[in-house]
Amino acid sequence: MARTILIPLQANDVAPRFDLAQAVMLATLPEEGAALTTTLVLEQPSADGLCDLALSRGVTCVVCNGIEEEYYHYLRWKRVEVLDSIMGPVDLVLERLARGQLKSGDILYGRGQGAAHV
């Protein structure tokens, strides 16, 4: 089944903070084939706004870096999977997500110990 992913963006990377992201990528990951992506520019950064967006668009997984506990638990409560503390370029994130190899805490910049192999 196709999955819908929401990724807060800062340029081409995952945004450092969920609540301060100015843009967001919505990606549909089919079981096979390439991801379909749409980028939305937000009127203003807002964690509440992003939660509403995720729920209204039927998002199944949020991939983000920093997120406050309350929003994390709210999304989990709404049965949205949350992978947080993810750092790196969004194309690498999508690639690893499609392969089922992305987990919370992955750093995809490639130099630190926490860096996943890219």
């Binding site: 450092p16 750092m87 490639g110 630190g112 110990q113």
Partner: peptide, 11 residues
């Protein structure tokens, strides 16, 4: 060791 190489703002 995790943070090394990452942009400051991300960490």
């Amino acid at each position: 060791s995790e943070a090394m190489g990452a942009p400051c703002g991300q960490v």
